[in-house]
């Protein structure tokens, strides 16, 4: 099984303090100096404890079922549901990806919280989430570069557990990749270990497109990504 593997350094992700603050809910300039200082300190400590990896595998044996709104990849049927279906149905191949910040950052976050250093623990947690999202962005950019040369484009990335696509479908997704792909293990309850990991698919084709406003398509009222967008 051929796949493309990435190892990222934290510096490549260009995370900055105000980005972390904005994920925490703060609007520009609203955060206090001491909190910003602590975030900046934690960011410096993070380099040594994260192990940022991404991996994708492109599969061309795919078939769409317009009635059921499903996609069959390597003979496994995925119930991706209406929204995701509509966004990837013009693909002629699919990249299955995983991405992780490694387990160190989660362990560090828990340790700080246990020792009573609540804010530090929380900052590690938020940074861990941002790392994995940013790494996935980078990996996606790399994928785009490789397909562009053959005149193709990519879609956004879509993950089980979002837009009506059931989170348990991750079990099938993991069947499409070798075991220990990207160093991630999937538990029985469809939880990835390390915690700071994401999984999903990206459509590839001449007629697909990248949509910068996918949040408008989803009806989840509680998602903080949606809320963050509303505030901006």
């Amino acid at each position: 099984m051929e796949s493309t593997h990435f190892q990222f350094a934290l510096s490549e992700l260009n995370l900055n303090v105000s980005q972390i603050e904005s994920v925490m809910g703060y609007k520009q300039g609203e955060s206090q100096e001491t909190i910003s200082d602590l975030i900046s300190e934690v960011l410096k400590e993070t380099e040594a404890i994260c192990n940022i990896k991404g991996e994708y595998r492109i599969l061309s044996d795919i078939q769409f079922n317009d009635v059921e709104k499903t996609i069959e990849i390597n003979h496994l049927v995925f119930q991706i549901k209406k929204i995701v279906y509509g966004l990837i149905k013009k693909s002629d191949s699919i990249a299955v990806f995983l991405c992780t910040a490694g387990e160190g950052i989660g362990i560090r976050s828990k340790k700080a919280m246990k020792e009573g250093d609540l804010l530090t623990g929380y900052i590690y947690d938020v940074i861990g989430s941002e790392i994995v999202e940013s790494a996935a962005d980078l990996m996606q950019n790399e994928l785009e570069k490789t397909v562009i040369s053959s005149g193709k484009k990519i879609t956004n990335r879509y993950s089980p557990g979002y837009c009506g696509w059931d989170v348990t479908e991750q079990h099938k997704l993991f069947e499409l990749v070798p075991s220990n792909f990207c160093g991630i293990r999937l538990t029985e309850s469809a939880l990835m270990d390390p915690i700071k990991s994401v999984s999903g698919i990206i459509g590839i084709g001449e007629n697909v497109r990248f949509n910068p406003y996918t949040c408008n398509l989803c009806d989840n009222k509680n998602c903080i990504y949606g809320n963050a967008r509303e505030k901006n």
Partner: peptide, 17 residues
């Protein structure tokens, strides 16, 4: 009411501690 965010809540919990 979203007037403060998690960091402030954590600092208060620590102060209570």
């Amino acid at each position: 009411r979203r007037e403060i965010y998690v960091p402030q809540m954590l600092m208060s919990a620590k102060a209570m501690g």
